[in-house]
Design a protein around this nucleic acid. Structure first.
Ligand SMILES: [Zn+2]
Ligand SMILES: [Zn+2]
Ligand SMILES: [Zn+2]
Ligand SMILES: [Zn+2]
Lengths: 143, 143
DNA sequence: CTGACAATGATAATGATTGTCAAAAACGCA
DNA sequence: TGCGTTTTTGACAATCATTATCATTGTCAG
C-alpha cells in the first residue's frame, strides 16, 4: 500500500494560479510561457514554482507533457485516460484523439517480437485550419 | 533546384570512424556513448565532431534520432524510408516496424480536423526477451 | 605541389531544468 | 485568534546536453 494519502497537500494561491492559467489555455505551452502569462496577469509566481507545480500535476496525471524536437517541454490540461494529440505546429492548438486500432496494433507488434511491459508514444503534427488561412498571425500563441 | 550538390563534402577519418561505429551498433546510443566507444577503440575524434557528424547524418536521413524522456538524444543507423521503432528500454535494442494502418489513420484523423501538412511520431517501448530473462546484465548496452 | 576552403576540436557559451536553503505561508489545534 | 509545526516558496546557483567560437589542421581540385 502506498503512503501517499497521509502527506499533507496545502492549498496555495500559486498553485491555484498555475492551475487556472492552464485551464484557460487551448494549446500546449511551456513553463516559461505560462510563467510570463501569469506575470502579465499580475499574479506573482516564481518560475521555480511553476516548474514544480507542472511536474506535480504531470505526475498526478492531470496534465500532459510533450517534448517537441529541439524545444522546451510543453504542458496542457487534458482529459483523463489514454489519448494522443493532433497538434498545430504553428500555434500549439491541440485536439485530443483516440485510436483503438493504434493501441492494439502497438500491442500486437510488441508481443510478436517478444517484448513485454509495453507502452508507446504518438503525436500527430500539422497546420491547423486557422494557421493555414492567415499564416503566422496568432496573438497569444506560438509563432 | 537545391544548391546542395555544389558544396564540397570532404572525406575525413573522423567521419568514417563515427559512421563505422554506428554501423556496428545494434541499438540506439547517445553521442557521448559513441564518443566513448571511439576512444576505447583508439580512434581520436572530438566530441564536437561526433555531435556534428551525427547531426549531418540525421539531416541526410541516414540515421534516426530518438529523444527519450529526460535523457540525451539517441542515434541509430536505420533503413531508409518511413518506419517506427520497438525499443527495449533496458538495453536500447531496437526493431524497425512498419504500420501502414497507423500511417493512414494519422492522415485521416488530421484531415478530419482540417489540419494540413501532416507528420507524426510514434515509438513503442518495452522490455526485450533478453532483458526480461536476465535483468540488468547486458554488457555494452544501456543499463 | 599548393592554395582555397571545409573540417576539426579545445574551449566557452547557451539555455532549459533542477538543487539549495532561508524566509514566508498554511493549517491543525489550543 | 494566536502558535508551532511542516510545507511551500523563490531568488540564486548548479547541472548538463548541446551549440557557437575560432585558431589550427586536413582535403583535394587544379
Ligand atoms: Zn494553428
Ligand atoms: Zn495510444
Ligand atoms: Zn533489452
Ligand atoms: Zn508512421
Amino acid at each position: 500500500m502506498s503512503a501517499d494519502q497521509n502527506v499533507a497537500q496545502r492549498n496555495t494561491k500559486q498553485r491555484s494560479a498555475v492551475s487556472a492559467v492552464l485551464s484557460e489555455a487551448e494549446g500546449f505551452y511551456s513553463a516559461q510561457e505560462l510563467h510570463a502569462r501569469l506575470r502579465e496577469r499580475g499574479e506573482r509566481v516564481g518560475l521555480t514554482t511553476v516548474y514544480r507545480t507542472l511536474q506535480g500535476l504531470a505526475d498526478a496525471g492531470e496534465i500532459d507533457v510533450m517534448r517537441p524536437p529541439g524545444g522546451e517541454h510543453l504542458y496542457r490540461r487534458c482529459s483523463q485516460g489514454h489519448h494522443h494529440h493532433l497538434v498545430c505546429r504553428e500555434c500549439g492548438r491541440a485536439v485530443e484523439v483516440e485510436g483503438p486500432a493504434v493501441e492494439s496494433w502497438a500491442e500486437k507488434v510488441a508481443s510478436r517480437h517478444g517484448y513485454v511491459n509495453v507502452s508507446h508514444t504518438m503525436e500527430i503534427f500539422g497546420t491547423c485550419p486557422d494557421c493555414a488561412t492567415n499564416p503566422s498571425n496568432h496573438p497569444g500563441h506560438r509563432p
